[in-house]
Amino acid sequence: MNITFKDETFRDDYTFSNSEEQIKRFPFPFHEDSYMYSVNMEPHAAVRPGSVFENDFDVDEHYVSEMRDRAKVLDEDPLRCQSLPHMTLAGWDLLELIMTSKAKDYPHWFELHRDGKNWHWINHPLNIEQKFIFGDETTLPYGPLEYITRQTQGDFVLLDQREENLWLEAGMVTTQADWSLDFDIGMNFFEWHAPVPLAHEMGIFQRALKFLLNIQQGTPARRLNWTMTANPLLDTSPENYHKWGKQKLEVTRENVGNKMHLRVELQTFFRLPRSNALVFPIRCYLIKLEELVTIPKWGRRFHRVIRDLPEELATYKGFIDNRPKIVEYLSKYDDGQDTSLGIWPE
C-alpha cells in the first residue's frame, strides 16, 4: 500500500480528515440497518486486501500524527500508561508480537533484526532506531509496553487470566471512549464493564468472557464497537472530560456534517505466548458524517441506525442531545432504497 502519512491534529484546530482512499477502507460497523449489542466476535483473519482487516496491526495515513498526539497526552498525564509489576512479561510478549507483525506486513516501514536476545528495531516513519536486549528493560527508554505502544496506533490493554476471569492489569490508553485506565486497572472483566447499560442483563459479558478465555495463541479474534464524538478528538478521556464535554454544545444543524464523527473501535484479542495473558488492542477510527455519506449505502444505513437506536444506548454513547441534528442531516442521504447485507461499501 502506497500511502503518505498526513500531518494533522486531533486537538485545538482539528485538521484531521480522511483521504478518499481512507474513507473507502473505513471499518463501517453496521452489517444491517439496525443495531443492538451482540457478542459479534469473529476470527481476526486477513480479508479484503487494503482493508483495515488485512493485517494484525493496521498502519494507515494517520499513523505519524496519531503517535504525536499520544506523546502529548502522555506528557500531560503519565498515568495513561500503567503496568502492574507482574505484567512486564506480557509487555515483552506484546512488543514481540507487534514488532514481528509489522516487520512482516510492512517491511518498507519497519525492520526487525534478531540475533538471539540482541534485537535491532527500525521504525522508518517515526525515525526510530533501537538496539536492545529482549527481556532487559534497562536497554529500552521505556518499559516494553510503553515503548512499543508509543509506536503503534490504538489503545492497548493487557489482561491477565486467572480464576476463570480476565484482569485488566496493564495498558496504554490515550484514545478511549470515556473510560479511565487509572481507575479501572486491577479490575476483572465484569467489574470494568460495570457502567455499561443493558448488556449485563442480556448475558453479553458472560458469553464474551467465555469466548475470550478460550482464545488460543495464533488464532486472534476481533469485533467492532462504535460511538460518536464531536470533533476528531482522540483523547475523549474521563480525565479531560471537564475540558472536552462542552464541545458537544458546538454542534449545530449547519456544522453537524463536519463536526460530528462516527468513532469505531476495531477491538482485537491475541493470546500471548510466555505470559498466557491476552492483549486487547482497541484501535480507534474516526470519520466525519460528510465523509461517511460519500458512500451511499453507509449514508442510508447510518441514518436508519441512529434514528432507531434505543434511547438508553444513545444516552450511554453520549449523543442523545445531538441526535435530532444528526438524524436530520443523515436523512438527506437516505432515499429509502434497500441496502445490501454486510459492512462493505458495496
Binding site: S180, F183, D184, I185, G186, M187, E191, A194, P195, P238, Y241, H242, W244, G245, K246, K248, L249, D321
Partner: peptide
C-alpha cells in the same frame, strides 16, 4: 457520583457534572 467502584483505589468515581453545560 458515577456508579463505578475501584478496589485498588477503594473509591467510587466522581465526574464533572456540568462538563457539557458549564
Amino acid at each position: 457520583v458515577r456508579d463505578h467502584y475501584s478496589r485498588r483505589i477503594a473509591a467510587f468515581q466522581g465526574v464533572r457534572v456540568d462538563a457539557e453545560d458549564p
